[in-house]
Design a protein around this nucleic acid. Sequence first.
DNA 1: GGCGAACCGTACCGTACGGTACGCAATTTC
DNA 2: GAAATTGCGTACCGTACGGTACGGTTCGCC
Lengths: 214, 214
Amino acid sequence: MQVVEQGGEGAAAGLTERQGAVLERALGLLVEGGEKALTTAGVARAANCSKESLYKWFGDRDGLLSAMIAYQAGKVRTVEAGAGALSAASLRRHLTVFARDLIDVLSGEVSLALNRLAIGQASREGAKLGRLLQERGRRQIGRRATALLEAGRKAGLIAFDDAEEAYGTLYGLIVSDMHLRMLLGEDRGALKKEFSPRAEKAVDAFLTLYGVES
Amino acid sequence: MQVVEQGGEGAAAGLTERQGAVLERALGLLVEGGEKALTTAGVARAANCSKESLYKWFGDRDGLLSAMIAYQAGKVRTVEAGAGALSAASLRRHLTVFARDLIDVLSGEVSLALNRLAIGQASREGAKLGRLLQERGRRQIGRRATALLEAGRKAGLIAFDDAEEAYGTLYGLIVSDMHLRMLLGEDRGALKKEFSPRAEKAVDAFLTLYGVES
DNA sequence: GGCGAACCGTACCGTACGGTACGCAATTTC
DNA sequence: GAAATTGCGTACCGTACGGTACGGTTCGCC
Protein backbone atom coordinates (compact mmCIF):
# COMPACT_ATOMS: atom_id res chain seq x y z
CA MET A 1 0.00 0.00 0.00
CA GLN A 2 1.66 3.16 -1.17
CA VAL A 3 0.34 6.00 0.91
CA VAL A 4 0.36 9.13 -1.14
CA GLU A 5 0.94 12.15 1.03
CA GLN A 6 0.39 14.61 -1.71
CA GLY A 7 -1.43 13.04 -4.59
CA GLY A 8 -2.11 14.61 -7.92
CA GLU A 9 -5.64 15.65 -7.07
CA GLY A 10 -5.75 16.53 -3.42
CA ALA A 11 -5.68 13.17 -1.77
CA ALA A 12 -6.80 13.76 1.77
CA ALA A 13 -6.17 11.59 4.81
CA GLY A 14 -4.03 8.59 3.86
CA LEU A 15 -5.70 7.57 0.67
CA THR A 16 -3.85 5.66 -2.01
CA GLU A 17 -4.11 6.77 -5.60
CA ARG A 18 -6.15 3.71 -6.32
CA GLN A 19 -8.63 4.54 -3.61
CA GLY A 20 -8.90 8.09 -4.89
CA ALA A 21 -9.62 6.81 -8.37
CA VAL A 22 -12.31 4.54 -6.98
CA LEU A 23 -13.93 7.46 -5.16
CA GLU A 24 -13.77 9.44 -8.37
CA ARG A 25 -15.68 6.75 -10.21
CA ALA A 26 -18.15 6.51 -7.35
CA LEU A 27 -18.78 10.25 -7.56
CA GLY A 28 -19.37 9.81 -11.27
CA LEU A 29 -21.99 7.16 -10.62
CA LEU A 30 -23.64 9.35 -8.01
CA VAL A 31 -23.83 12.29 -10.40
CA GLU A 32 -25.28 10.10 -13.13
CA GLY A 33 -27.97 8.24 -11.30
CA GLY A 34 -28.32 9.52 -7.78
CA GLU A 35 -28.01 7.51 -4.62
CA LYS A 36 -30.01 4.62 -6.00
CA ALA A 37 -27.36 4.06 -8.65
CA LEU A 38 -24.62 3.97 -6.05
CA THR A 39 -24.59 0.29 -5.18
CA THR A 40 -21.51 -1.42 -3.88
CA ALA A 41 -21.55 -3.83 -6.78
CA GLY A 42 -21.95 -0.94 -9.20
CA VAL A 43 -19.02 0.96 -7.76
CA ALA A 44 -16.86 -2.16 -7.84
CA ARG A 45 -17.75 -2.81 -11.47
CA ALA A 46 -17.28 0.81 -12.56
CA ALA A 47 -13.95 1.11 -10.77
CA ASN A 48 -12.65 -2.32 -11.73
CA CYS A 49 -12.15 -3.35 -8.19
CA SER A 50 -13.69 -5.99 -5.98
CA LYS A 51 -16.39 -5.47 -3.42
CA GLU A 52 -14.09 -7.04 -0.88
CA SER A 53 -11.60 -4.23 -1.40
CA LEU A 54 -14.32 -1.64 -0.99
CA TYR A 55 -15.26 -3.08 2.38
CA LYS A 56 -11.64 -3.38 3.38
CA TRP A 57 -10.92 0.25 2.54
CA PHE A 58 -14.09 1.98 3.64
CA GLY A 59 -15.65 -0.34 6.17
CA ASP A 60 -19.20 -0.31 4.88
CA ARG A 61 -21.43 1.61 2.55
CA ASP A 62 -21.73 4.58 4.87
CA GLY A 63 -17.97 4.73 5.15
CA LEU A 64 -17.78 4.89 1.39
CA LEU A 65 -20.24 7.78 1.31
CA SER A 66 -18.32 9.66 3.99
CA ALA A 67 -15.08 9.07 2.14
CA MET A 68 -16.63 10.45 -1.02
CA ILE A 69 -17.64 13.66 0.72
CA ALA A 70 -14.26 14.05 2.41
CA TYR A 71 -12.47 13.34 -0.86
CA GLN A 72 -14.46 15.88 -2.83
CA ALA A 73 -14.15 18.49 -0.09
CA GLY A 74 -10.42 17.96 -0.10
CA LYS A 75 -10.27 19.00 -3.73
CA VAL A 76 -11.79 22.40 -3.09
CA ARG A 77 -9.19 24.73 -1.78
CA THR A 78 -10.30 28.17 -0.75
CA VAL A 79 -8.26 30.82 -2.45
CA GLU A 80 -6.75 33.21 -0.01
CA ALA A 81 -7.59 36.70 -1.11
CA GLY A 82 -4.50 38.83 -1.08
CA ALA A 83 -4.95 40.83 2.07
CA GLY A 84 -3.46 43.96 0.62
CA ALA A 85 -4.90 47.40 1.21
CA LEU A 86 -8.53 47.41 0.17
CA SER A 87 -10.10 50.25 -1.74
CA ALA A 88 -13.83 50.57 -2.29
CA ALA A 89 -13.34 49.39 -5.85
CA SER A 90 -11.19 46.40 -4.92
CA LEU A 91 -13.58 45.34 -2.17
CA ARG A 92 -16.42 45.40 -4.66
CA ARG A 93 -14.31 43.41 -7.08
CA HIS A 94 -13.41 40.80 -4.48
CA LEU A 95 -17.02 40.47 -3.41
CA THR A 96 -18.11 39.99 -6.98
CA VAL A 97 -15.51 37.32 -7.55
CA PHE A 98 -16.65 35.63 -4.38
CA ALA A 99 -20.26 35.74 -5.52
CA ARG A 100 -19.40 34.14 -8.84
CA ASP A 101 -17.28 31.48 -7.16
CA LEU A 102 -20.08 30.72 -4.74
CA ILE A 103 -22.56 30.30 -7.58
CA ASP A 104 -20.09 28.09 -9.42
CA VAL A 105 -19.57 25.84 -6.42
CA LEU A 106 -23.23 25.51 -5.55
CA SER A 107 -24.26 24.77 -9.11
CA GLY A 108 -21.55 22.17 -9.67
CA GLU A 109 -22.79 18.71 -10.59
CA VAL A 110 -20.83 16.93 -7.91
CA SER A 111 -21.76 19.44 -5.25
CA LEU A 112 -25.44 19.06 -6.06
CA ALA A 113 -25.21 15.28 -6.05
CA LEU A 114 -23.47 15.20 -2.68
CA ASN A 115 -25.93 17.65 -1.17
CA ARG A 116 -28.79 15.49 -2.40
CA LEU A 117 -27.13 12.46 -0.92
CA ALA A 118 -26.59 14.08 2.47
CA ILE A 119 -30.11 15.49 2.55
CA GLY A 120 -31.53 12.10 1.73
CA GLN A 121 -29.70 10.62 4.70
CA ALA A 122 -30.50 13.48 7.04
CA SER A 123 -33.52 11.78 8.58
CA ARG A 124 -31.65 8.83 9.96
CA GLU A 125 -28.34 8.30 11.67
CA GLY A 126 -28.18 11.76 13.19
CA ALA A 127 -27.40 13.47 9.90
CA LYS A 128 -23.77 12.42 9.98
CA LEU A 129 -23.21 13.14 6.32
CA GLY A 130 -25.01 16.45 6.59
CA ARG A 131 -22.70 17.62 9.35
CA LEU A 132 -19.68 16.44 7.41
CA LEU A 133 -20.76 18.30 4.32
CA GLN A 134 -21.56 21.38 6.35
CA GLU A 135 -18.21 21.47 8.11
CA ARG A 136 -16.06 20.67 5.13
CA GLY A 137 -18.02 22.72 2.65
CA ARG A 138 -19.91 25.66 4.02
CA ARG A 139 -17.51 26.46 6.83
CA GLN A 140 -14.61 26.59 4.42
CA ILE A 141 -16.16 29.03 1.99
CA GLY A 142 -17.69 30.94 4.88
CA ARG A 143 -14.27 31.54 6.37
CA ARG A 144 -13.08 33.03 3.13
CA ALA A 145 -16.06 35.35 3.02
CA THR A 146 -15.87 36.49 6.62
CA ALA A 147 -12.15 37.13 6.23
CA LEU A 148 -12.92 39.36 3.27
CA LEU A 149 -15.64 41.14 5.19
CA GLU A 150 -13.38 41.68 8.19
CA ALA A 151 -10.74 43.14 5.91
CA GLY A 152 -13.35 45.47 4.48
CA ARG A 153 -14.34 46.60 7.94
CA LYS A 154 -10.75 47.13 8.95
CA ALA A 155 -10.31 49.33 5.90
CA GLY A 156 -13.30 51.38 7.02
CA LEU A 157 -15.34 50.51 3.94
CA ILE A 158 -18.16 48.54 5.53
CA ALA A 159 -19.61 48.36 9.01
CA PHE A 160 -21.35 45.56 10.90
CA ASP A 161 -21.53 44.09 14.35
CA ASP A 162 -21.45 40.40 13.55
CA ALA A 163 -19.45 39.12 10.60
CA GLU A 164 -21.42 35.86 10.53
CA GLU A 165 -24.67 37.74 10.27
CA ALA A 166 -23.33 39.99 7.53
CA TYR A 167 -22.15 36.92 5.67
CA GLY A 168 -25.61 35.42 6.02
CA THR A 169 -27.06 38.49 4.39
CA LEU A 170 -24.54 38.39 1.57
CA TYR A 171 -25.23 34.70 1.03
CA GLY A 172 -28.96 35.24 0.89
CA LEU A 173 -28.65 38.10 -1.55
CA ILE A 174 -26.50 36.03 -3.88
CA VAL A 175 -28.16 32.66 -3.67
CA SER A 176 -31.81 33.36 -2.82
CA ASP A 177 -33.61 30.11 -3.54
CA MET A 178 -31.41 29.10 -6.46
CA HIS A 179 -29.70 26.31 -4.56
CA LEU A 180 -32.92 24.69 -3.41
CA ARG A 181 -34.42 24.88 -6.88
CA MET A 182 -31.41 23.16 -8.37
CA LEU A 183 -31.53 20.51 -5.65
CA LEU A 184 -35.17 19.91 -6.55
CA GLY A 185 -34.15 19.19 -10.11
CA GLU A 186 -34.53 22.44 -11.98
CA ASP A 187 -32.13 22.75 -14.86
CA ARG A 188 -28.65 23.64 -13.63
CA GLY A 189 -27.53 25.57 -16.66
CA ALA A 190 -30.66 27.66 -16.98
CA LEU A 191 -30.69 28.59 -13.31
CA LYS A 192 -27.02 29.46 -13.33
CA LYS A 193 -27.55 31.71 -16.32
CA GLU A 194 -30.42 33.34 -14.50
CA PHE A 195 -28.51 33.95 -11.31
CA SER A 196 -25.06 34.85 -12.57
CA PRO A 197 -26.04 38.36 -13.67
CA ARG A 198 -27.55 38.89 -10.25
CA ALA A 199 -24.18 38.44 -8.61
CA GLU A 200 -23.25 42.07 -9.18
CA LYS A 201 -26.65 43.29 -8.11
CA ALA A 202 -26.31 41.27 -4.93
CA VAL A 203 -22.96 42.88 -4.22
CA ASP A 204 -24.45 46.30 -4.92
CA ALA A 205 -27.27 45.59 -2.50
CA PHE A 206 -24.87 44.31 0.12
CA LEU A 207 -22.73 47.43 -0.13
CA THR A 208 -25.84 49.58 0.06
CA LEU A 209 -26.76 47.87 3.30
CA TYR A 210 -23.37 47.69 4.96
CA GLY A 211 -21.23 50.28 3.20
CA VAL A 212 -20.18 53.40 5.07
CA GLU A 213 -20.43 56.82 3.46
CA SER A 214 -17.12 57.90 2.06
CA MET B 1 -66.94 4.69 -2.44
CA GLN B 2 -68.18 7.90 -0.94
CA VAL B 3 -66.43 10.73 -2.67
CA VAL B 4 -66.03 13.59 -0.27
CA GLU B 5 -66.16 16.86 -2.11
CA GLN B 6 -65.27 18.95 0.86
CA GLY B 7 -63.54 16.95 3.54
CA GLY B 8 -62.69 18.16 6.96
CA GLU B 9 -59.05 18.86 6.22
CA GLY B 10 -58.77 20.11 2.71
CA ALA B 11 -59.32 16.97 0.73
CA ALA B 12 -58.06 17.73 -2.74
CA ALA B 13 -58.98 15.97 -5.96
CA GLY B 14 -61.53 13.23 -5.31
CA LEU B 15 -60.03 11.68 -2.22
CA THR B 16 -62.16 9.81 0.25
CA GLU B 17 -61.77 10.51 3.93
CA ARG B 18 -60.19 7.13 4.35
CA GLN B 19 -57.59 7.85 1.71
CA GLY B 20 -56.83 11.18 3.33
CA ALA B 21 -56.33 9.47 6.66
CA VAL B 22 -53.97 6.99 5.02
CA LEU B 23 -51.95 9.82 3.50
CA GLU B 24 -51.82 11.49 6.89
CA ARG B 25 -50.34 8.36 8.45
CA ALA B 26 -47.91 8.05 5.55
CA LEU B 27 -46.74 11.61 6.13
CA GLY B 28 -46.24 10.72 9.77
CA LEU B 29 -44.05 7.79 8.84
CA LEU B 30 -42.07 9.97 6.44
CA VAL B 31 -41.46 12.58 9.12
CA GLU B 32 -40.39 9.94 11.61
CA GLY B 33 -37.98 7.90 9.59
CA GLY B 34 -37.41 9.46 6.21
CA GLU B 35 -37.97 7.85 2.86
CA LYS B 36 -36.46 4.56 3.91
CA ALA B 37 -39.18 4.14 6.52
CA LEU B 38 -41.88 4.73 3.95
CA THR B 39 -42.46 1.20 2.70
CA THR B 40 -45.75 0.09 1.26
CA ALA B 41 -46.09 -2.58 3.92
CA GLY B 42 -45.28 -0.04 6.60
CA VAL B 43 -47.88 2.42 5.39
CA ALA B 44 -50.48 -0.33 5.18
CA ARG B 45 -49.72 -1.48 8.70
CA ALA B 46 -49.67 2.03 10.17
CA ALA B 47 -52.91 3.00 8.46
CA ASN B 48 -54.68 -0.32 9.06
CA CYS B 49 -55.32 -0.90 5.43
CA SER B 50 -54.13 -3.49 2.95
CA LYS B 51 -51.39 -3.09 0.45
CA GLU B 52 -53.86 -4.06 -2.21
CA SER B 53 -55.94 -1.00 -1.38
CA LEU B 54 -52.88 1.21 -1.58
CA TYR B 55 -52.15 0.01 -5.08
CA LYS B 56 -55.77 0.34 -6.08
CA TRP B 57 -55.94 3.93 -4.86
CA PHE B 58 -52.54 5.29 -5.80
CA GLY B 59 -51.32 3.02 -8.58
CA ASP B 60 -47.80 2.42 -7.33
CA ARG B 61 -45.33 3.76 -4.81
CA ASP B 62 -44.58 6.87 -6.83
CA GLY B 63 -48.28 7.60 -7.08
CA LEU B 64 -48.45 7.41 -3.32
CA LEU B 65 -45.60 9.88 -2.96
CA SER B 66 -47.19 12.28 -5.41
CA ALA B 67 -50.52 11.99 -3.61
CA MET B 68 -48.79 12.78 -0.32
CA ILE B 69 -47.31 15.97 -1.74
CA ALA B 70 -50.57 17.04 -3.35
CA TYR B 71 -52.47 16.27 -0.17
CA GLN B 72 -50.14 18.25 2.05
CA ALA B 73 -50.04 21.17 -0.39
CA GLY B 74 -53.83 21.21 -0.42
CA LYS B 75 -53.83 21.86 3.29
CA VAL B 76 -51.82 25.06 3.02
CA ARG B 77 -54.03 27.89 2.00
CA THR B 78 -52.38 31.22 1.36
CA VAL B 79 -54.00 33.95 3.35
CA GLU B 80 -55.10 36.81 1.20
CA ALA B 81 -53.75 39.99 2.65
CA GLY B 82 -56.48 42.57 2.91
CA ALA B 83 -55.72 44.83 -0.04
CA GLY B 84 -56.72 47.97 1.76
CA ALA B 85 -54.74 51.18 1.50
CA LEU B 86 -51.16 50.55 2.51
CA SER B 87 -49.18 52.90 4.69
CA ALA B 88 -45.48 52.61 5.25
CA ALA B 89 -46.16 51.12 8.66
CA SER B 90 -48.73 48.60 7.44
CA LEU B 91 -46.51 47.50 4.57
CA ARG B 92 -43.74 46.87 7.02
CA ARG B 93 -46.13 44.96 9.24
CA HIS B 94 -47.40 42.83 6.39
CA LEU B 95 -43.88 42.07 5.24
CA THR B 96 -42.89 41.04 8.75
CA VAL B 97 -45.88 38.75 9.04
CA PHE B 98 -44.98 37.24 5.69
CA ALA B 99 -41.41 36.70 6.82
CA ARG B 100 -42.52 34.88 9.95
CA ASP B 101 -45.01 32.78 8.01
CA LEU B 102 -42.33 31.86 5.50
CA ILE B 103 -39.98 30.78 8.25
CA ASP B 104 -42.77 28.77 9.86
CA VAL B 105 -43.61 26.97 6.64
CA LEU B 106 -40.02 26.19 5.71
CA SER B 107 -39.15 24.91 9.17
CA GLY B 108 -42.23 22.71 9.46
CA GLU B 109 -41.54 19.02 10.00
CA VAL B 110 -43.74 17.85 7.17
CA SER B 111 -42.40 20.46 4.78
CA LEU B 112 -38.83 19.45 5.52
CA ALA B 113 -39.62 15.77 5.11
CA LEU B 114 -41.33 16.31 1.76
CA ASN B 115 -38.53 18.50 0.50
CA ARG B 116 -36.02 15.82 1.48
CA LEU B 117 -38.10 13.24 -0.29
CA ALA B 118 -38.38 15.27 -3.49
CA ILE B 119 -34.68 16.15 -3.44
CA GLY B 120 -33.78 12.51 -3.02
CA GLN B 121 -35.79 11.64 -6.10
CA ALA B 122 -34.56 14.59 -8.14
CA SER B 123 -31.81 12.63 -9.87
CA ARG B 124 -34.09 10.15 -11.54
CA GLU B 125 -37.44 10.32 -13.25
CA GLY B 126 -37.11 13.90 -14.40
CA ALA B 127 -37.60 15.33 -10.95
CA LYS B 128 -41.35 14.85 -11.11
CA LEU B 129 -41.81 15.26 -7.39
CA GLY B 130 -39.55 18.27 -7.32
CA ARG B 131 -41.62 20.05 -9.93
CA LEU B 132 -44.80 19.14 -8.10
CA LEU B 133 -43.48 20.50 -4.83
CA GLN B 134 -42.22 23.61 -6.55
CA GLU B 135 -45.51 24.41 -8.23
CA ARG B 136 -47.78 23.60 -5.32
CA GLY B 137 -45.55 25.07 -2.68
CA ARG B 138 -43.23 27.83 -3.73
CA ARG B 139 -45.45 29.29 -6.43
CA GLN B 140 -48.31 29.61 -3.99
CA ILE B 141 -46.43 31.50 -1.35
CA GLY B 142 -44.59 33.46 -4.02
CA ARG B 143 -47.85 34.72 -5.41
CA ARG B 144 -48.85 36.04 -2.03
CA ALA B 145 -45.54 37.84 -1.70
CA THR B 146 -45.53 39.39 -5.15
CA ALA B 147 -49.12 40.53 -4.65
CA LEU B 148 -48.05 42.29 -1.48
CA LEU B 149 -45.07 43.83 -3.22
CA GLU B 150 -47.20 45.04 -6.11
CA ALA B 151 -49.61 46.62 -3.66
CA GLY B 152 -46.69 48.37 -2.01
CA ARG B 153 -45.52 49.68 -5.35
CA LYS B 154 -48.98 50.89 -6.26
CA ALA B 155 -49.09 52.78 -2.99
CA GLY B 156 -45.82 54.45 -3.92
CA LEU B 157 -43.95 52.97 -0.97
CA ILE B 158 -41.46 50.76 -2.77
CA ALA B 159 -40.02 50.73 -6.27
CA PHE B 160 -38.71 47.93 -8.46
CA ASP B 161 -38.74 46.82 -12.07
CA ASP B 162 -39.37 43.12 -11.66
CA ALA B 163 -41.56 41.86 -8.84
CA GLU B 164 -40.13 38.36 -9.14
CA GLU B 165 -36.63 39.68 -8.71
CA ALA B 166 -37.63 41.79 -5.74
CA TYR B 167 -39.27 38.76 -4.20
CA GLY B 168 -36.10 36.80 -4.74
CA THR B 169 -34.19 39.42 -2.80
CA LEU B 170 -36.72 39.40 0.02
CA TYR B 171 -36.61 35.61 0.16
CA GLY B 172 -32.84 35.56 0.32
CA LEU B 173 -32.73 38.18 3.05
CA ILE B 174 -35.20 36.21 5.16
CA VAL B 175 -34.04 32.67 4.57
CA SER B 176 -30.33 32.92 3.79
CA ASP B 177 -29.06 29.35 4.13
CA MET B 178 -31.40 28.37 6.94
CA HIS B 179 -33.51 26.10 4.77
CA LEU B 180 -30.56 24.16 3.42
CA ARG B 181 -29.08 23.74 6.88
CA MET B 182 -32.33 22.34 8.20
CA LEU B 183 -32.59 20.01 5.23
CA LEU B 184 -29.10 18.79 6.02
CA GLY B 185 -30.24 17.85 9.49
CA GLU B 186 -29.37 20.78 11.69
CA ASP B 187 -31.74 21.14 14.61
CA ARG B 188 -35.02 22.70 13.50
CA GLY B 189 -35.87 24.42 16.73
CA ALA B 190 -32.46 25.96 17.25
CA LEU B 191 -32.25 27.26 13.72
CA LYS B 192 -35.76 28.67 13.84
CA LYS B 193 -34.91 30.48 17.06
CA GLU B 194 -31.81 31.83 15.39
CA PHE B 195 -33.59 33.08 12.30
CA SER B 196 -36.86 34.34 13.70
CA PRO B 197 -35.35 37.53 15.15
CA ARG B 198 -33.76 38.17 11.80
CA ALA B 199 -37.16 38.42 10.14
CA GLU B 200 -37.51 42.07 11.09
CA LYS B 201 -33.97 42.87 10.14
CA ALA B 202 -34.58 41.27 6.78
CA VAL B 203 -37.64 43.44 6.26
CA ASP B 204 -35.64 46.49 7.30
CA ALA B 205 -32.95 45.64 4.81
CA PHE B 206 -35.50 45.01 2.08
CA LEU B 207 -37.14 48.38 2.68
CA THR B 208 -33.74 50.05 2.70
CA LEU B 209 -33.05 48.57 -0.71
CA TYR B 210 -36.43 49.07 -2.36
CA GLY B 211 -38.15 51.78 -0.32
CA VAL B 212 -38.70 55.22 -1.83
CA GLU B 213 -37.93 58.35 0.14
CA SER B 214 -41.05 59.75 1.72
C1' DG C 1 13.13 -18.34 -6.89
C1' DG C 2 10.01 -18.73 -3.44
C1' DC C 3 6.88 -16.32 0.06
C1' DG C 4 3.24 -13.42 1.33
C1' DA C 5 0.31 -9.57 0.90
C1' DA C 6 -2.92 -7.22 -1.82
C1' DC C 7 -6.54 -7.64 -4.87
C1' DC C 8 -9.72 -8.96 -8.73
C1' DG C 9 -13.74 -11.59 -10.29
C1' DT C 10 -17.35 -14.26 -9.01
C1' DA C 11 -20.30 -16.73 -6.42
C1' DC C 12 -23.04 -16.90 -2.45
C1' DC C 13 -26.27 -15.75 1.61
C1' DG C 14 -29.82 -13.42 4.14
C1' DT C 15 -32.92 -9.90 4.03
C1' DA C 16 -36.14 -6.57 2.66
C1' DC C 17 -38.83 -4.38 -0.55
C1' DG C 18 -42.37 -3.58 -4.51
C1' DG C 19 -46.04 -5.62 -6.38
C1' DT C 20 -49.74 -9.46 -6.87
C1' DA C 21 -53.07 -13.01 -5.49
C1' DC C 22 -56.34 -15.12 -2.44
C1' DG C 23 -59.61 -16.00 1.40
C1' DC C 24 -62.91 -13.99 4.21
C1' DA C 25 -65.62 -10.42 6.75
C1' DA C 26 -68.42 -6.18 6.47
C1' DT C 27 -71.24 -3.07 4.16
C1' DT C 28 -74.06 -1.68 0.53
C1' DT C 29 -77.66 -2.50 -3.14
C1' DC C 30 -81.56 -4.37 -5.30
C1' DG D 1 -82.51 -11.62 2.33
C1' DA D 2 -79.34 -12.64 -1.42
C1' DA D 3 -75.85 -10.74 -4.45
C1' DA D 4 -72.19 -7.80 -5.09
C1' DT D 5 -68.80 -4.50 -3.88
C1' DT D 6 -65.19 -3.09 -0.88
C1' DG D 7 -61.41 -3.84 1.61
C1' DC D 8 -58.55 -6.07 5.43
C1' DG D 9 -55.03 -9.51 6.60
C1' DT D 10 -51.81 -12.58 5.00
C1' DA D 11 -49.15 -15.15 2.16
C1' DC D 12 -46.43 -15.24 -1.80
C1' DC D 13 -43.04 -14.11 -5.73
C1' DG D 14 -39.18 -12.06 -8.03
C1' DT D 15 -35.62 -9.05 -7.58
C1' DA D 16 -31.99 -6.40 -5.88
C1' DC D 17 -29.05 -4.99 -2.47
C1' DG D 18 -25.46 -5.12 1.50
C1' DG D 19 -22.14 -7.85 3.10
C1' DT D 20 -19.03 -12.20 3.15
C1' DA D 21 -16.23 -16.01 1.39
C1' DC D 22 -13.18 -18.16 -1.85
C1' DG D 23 -10.09 -19.34 -5.75
C1' DG D 24 -6.78 -17.46 -8.72
C1' DT D 25 -3.41 -13.87 -10.04
C1' DT D 26 -0.23 -10.19 -9.84
C1' DC D 27 3.42 -7.77 -7.53
C1' DG D 28 6.78 -6.48 -4.15
C1' DC D 29 10.27 -8.34 -1.00
C1' DC D 30 13.85 -11.27 1.04
